[in-house]
């Protein structure tokens, strides 16, 4: 399993663009918003938590179809399915690799982009905390969507259609944490809800994703 994680990370580094592309997309998104709503702090500040979270979510979506598609094309997925590691474990590891290559750079970049959107300083720790807790669920749910659409020729668009509704609870609690952090309110409740959702997703979704993969390998 560690070998699989190492290989996926090595592939992401060598193929290039793996880390950069999502962050670049995130930057463009955050730069576009002020053009749409105006440059005033009073306009940007209230929507900053939402824009940052929606931006992170959409950037995460970009690279989802690569989680399984490449391995399906070159036959690695067949071989992984016959390997001694359970397919559920392989799914979890591949989602983890996606999180490390996509989620972590987004988390690192989010405070910087927060400056662009006039996010007040006291909200930044909550932004980082909410993304740290929430994005693993995004990667895992994305892996589920990727597993369902892996055999399809034009799976990309369908993948977004299937996965985005599943992101709603995470998005709601994630933004709520940042918003309350910004207003210096109590963040404990949404934080617990978000952590609960992530824990549930990480525990259960690998089984659904592995079941979908087995169907697609048939």
């Amino acid at each position: 399993m560690i070998a699989l994680l190492k290989r996926d990370l090595a592939l992401a580094v060598r193929a290039g663009g793996g880390f950069g592309l999502g962050v670049a997309f995130f930057l463009i998104l955050c730069a576009l918003v002020p053009f749409g709503v105006g440059p005033e702090t009073s306009a940007l500040r209230p929507i900053a938590p939402g824009i940052l979270w929606v931006g992170a979510l959409l950037s995460c979506l970009l690279s989802l179809d690569r989680i399984f598609a490449l391995d399906h094309e070159d036959g690695s997925l067949d071989l992984l399915a016959t390997a001694p590691i359970p397919l559920e474990g392989a799914v979890a590891v591949k989602a983890l690799a996606h999180w490390v290559t996509t989620g972590l750079p987004l988390i690192a970049a989010a405070p910087l982009f927060g400056i662009l959107l006039h996010l007040p300083g006291q909200a930044v720790p909550w932004l980082i905390a909410s993304l740290l807790i929430g994005t693993p669920a995004l990667s895992m749910l994305g892996a589920f969507g990727a597993a369902i659409t892996v055999g399809l020729r034009r799976g990309g668009l369908l993948l977004s259609l299937l996965v985005l509704p599943l992101y709603i609870p995470t998005l709601i609690f994630g933004t709520e944490i940042v918003r309350r952090g910004m207003e210096q309110g109590s963040t404990a409740t949404p934080l617990l809800f978000l952590a609960g959702i992530t824990a549930g997703v990480l525990a259960l979704v690998p089984f659904a994703a592995a079941a979908a993969l087995r169907v697609n390998l048939r």
Partner: peptide
Amino acid sequence: SAADLTGVLCLVGSVFAILSRYAVLFW
């Protein structure tokens, strides 16, 4: 395959539909 995959999606979707219902209430 379509029957199997949509079945799994319906299962996962049901859980998230309920989850969203209560998340929205919170929101």
